[in-house]
Design a binder for these strands. Structure first.
Ligand SMILES: [Zn+2]
Ligand SMILES: [Zn+2]
Ligand SMILES: [Zn+2]
Ligand SMILES: [Zn+2]
Lengths: 176, 176
DNA sequence: TGCTAAATGTTATGCTATAACATATCAATC
DNA sequence: GATTGATATGTTATAGCATAACATTTAGCA
């Protein structure tokens, strides 16, 4: 029961270039639709918060997010940011990166999924891949001990392709 | 230190009963030996900090640890705890549980390893298993994208065998 | 309209972690 | 055994992350 099909459920998304404006807009549109379908309120603060998170494929601290919201007159006190983040993470629109105490827009909206993150310590970009918590080692160990998994935190710190020491690419931390 | 055999490098240690006094003492002894061999200073504060962490198979917050150290006259200010924790985690004697902002004594001392944790949200006990970062999904994704992993955070939240809702064991959060 | 629940505004506070600098300890070398 | 340099410890202050608690507003519904 380990690794049926290794490459299949890892819709890797990551450090390669892409049409990021489309990436953001289509994700926002899907979020909007998801909220309608599930009777969730996608208020201006929440929408803008998600947009801010999506603008970079980087994790943002709650206070970083708050700073942007504050600049735009959408709220000044910490609960503003944390409430928006609570909504976004509950809805599956964003994830918390535990290793950074920071938050990132979800690359695979809506579904209840078990994300895994590759975090570049040099350029700070973050890629999200999907895993299946019941597969892999964690699942093996859990089954072996009779542990029931409800949520997983799977994060790898290291260097993304652009920040490898040997291949001296121009490190471009933009939409990586 | 890269284990070929998939099922082999998961020296699960966990929620089952064991001789915990021996578990603590032998671990401390191994730590002591490791420090001698590697010219590390296992000072009273560091030794006691590890002992405190090992006493329960639970994660302790830095300030929880500090409270105990303070009661024993080993220091009162936060840096006391954080310095001890820095030493212990650097030496591989303890790990930080990112999902809890808390620290736990290592069950597999000394070696440079990639731990995975099963964290029971009911009784708060934590089991440590070993993984190989280069294997499993994270490794697959990393290879696929050209990402170089230097450190992994792998944690599962859920219910340990004793805290399953159906089987109504007496939940015994002691040395689980 | 009036009721209710949810969202937002606001203040205060708690928990987590580190910066910075002074002092003490220890071991190696002279 | 004094000099010296590196490591560890003591201490104060502050930065960074997160939530409690309560007031007010807004949106949906009877
Ligand atoms: Zn993009
Ligand atoms: Zn996601
Ligand atoms: Zn034990
Ligand atoms: Zn360990």
């Amino acid at each position: 029961m380990t690794d049926k099909n290794p490459a299949r459920d890892m819709s890797t998304l990551g450090f390669h270039a892409h049409d990021h404006t489309h990436c953001v807009n289509s994700t926002l549109a899907r979020a909007e639709r998801y909220c309608v379908e599930n009777k969730l309120k996608f208020t201006p603060i929440r929408r803008r918060a998600l947009e801010i998170l999506l603008e970079e494929h980087r994790a943002l601290g709650a206070y970083d997010l708050l700073a942007v919201l504050a600049r735009e007159g959408l709220g000044t006190a910490p609960p503003v940011a944390y409430r928006a983040l609570d909504f976004l993470t509950s809805a599956g629109f964003a994830h918390k990166i535990e290793g950074l105490n920071a938050y990132i827009g979800c690359a695979h909206l809506g579904a209840d999924h078990a994300p895994a993150f590759l975090i570049c310590t040099a350029c700070k970009s973050v890629a999200e891949a999907e895993t299946d918590a019941t597969q892999g080692r964690l699942g093996d160990v859990a089954r072996a001990t009779g542990f029931t998994i409800s949520h997983t935190v799977i994060e790898a710190l290291g260097l993304c392709p652009k920040c490898q020491p040997d291949d001296n690419n121009a490190a471009d931390p933009s939409c990586a």
